[in-house]
């Protein structure tokens, strides 16, 4: 059997999501960002929402998210994505609007924008990728860096006496009346990724209801920043990040 006999539509078991552009991903091999991108784009494609969706990219590792996603997108100043998304959704209520943000962007410099967009109950989705570090700028301490965790600005480990505590912002926003669906997932195994995709699908469905903000955290790895090989970084994440940031639904709609 020759190659051309194998490459046939009926034999297709895996393909690149059509909403990925041709641009190669700039993320480090082993990083969770690419998988989260893919799950979001698959959902938009499957729900037929390409023309209906406007995304907002942050500052951080995913600053260039708009280069990979074949949808209309805006790139925000550091931390301000929820403010952009607020106006986009209010001025285009018929569109699906999401932000894609990292922990530094969302839980440090953009805390006010995050809390207030959640509290106003903006009908948007916030995708929050938490890897406990500033990846793009070279591995500095983030608001979600674990106690004792070494980064370039906590080289002897995060001393909470001096540097304060990690911020569990997802638990915090779940308390606000404006959030409708708050959940924490991961994408390090096929099973976790499938679960994460279901959460993304629900969030897009919920946006149609105009009931409030959907906040989806993805606990992820940063093998470059953590200075671990990809597999080891995932193991470290399971052992250290998950106990502090437990996976699962935090707030579910009472349907």
């Amino acid at each position: 059997m020759e190659m051309k006999d194998i490459i046939k539509p009926e034999n297709l078991v895996f393909k690149k999501t059509s909403l990925f552009t041709e641009k190669p991903l700039s993320y480090c091999p082993g990083c969770g960002h690419g998988t989260v991108h893919r799950l979001i784009l698959e959902t938009i494609e499957e729900m037929g929402l390409q023309a209906e969706t406007i995304g907002v990219a942050p500052v951080g590792c995913s600053v260039l998210a708009y280069e990979f996603m074949d949808i209309d997108m805006q790139q925000a100043a550091h931390g301000r994505a929820p403010a952009l998304a607020t106006a986009i959704k209010r001025l285009h209520p018929e569109k699906f609007v999401f932000t894609y943000q990292g922990d530094g962007d969302l839980a440090a410099i953009g805390t006010a924008e995050t809390i207030h967009a959640c509290n106003r109950g903006e009908n948007i989705i916030i995708f929050f990728v938490n890897n406990g570090i500033y990846g793009m700028t070279g591995g500095q301490m983030a608001p979600t860096t674990l106690p004792g965790m070494k980064t370039s600005t906590s080289p002897f480990g995060r001393d909470t006496e001096i540097m304060g505590n990690p911020l569990k912002i997802t638990e915090l926003v779940a308390h606000l009346p404006g959030t409708y669906y708050v959940t924490r997932n991961a994408v390090h195994t096929p099973a976790a990724a499938r679960k994460a995709k279901k959460a993304i699908q629900k969030a897009f469905e919920y946006q149609k209801l105009n009931k409030g903000l959907c906040f989806l955290e993805f606990v992820s790895n940063c093998n470059s920043g953590w200075k671990l090989p990809p597999v080891k970084s995932n193991e470290w994440m399971v052992e250290n990040m998950f106990p502090y940031y437990p996976l699962g639904d935090i707030k579910v709609p009472s349907l």
Partner: peptide, 13 residues
């Protein structure tokens, strides 16, 4: 800060 960034989002549309 938020107000001007809301303007960014709206103007971008």
């Amino acid at each position: 800060v938020s107000a001007i960034n809301m303007c960014y989002g709206g103007a971008g549309c």
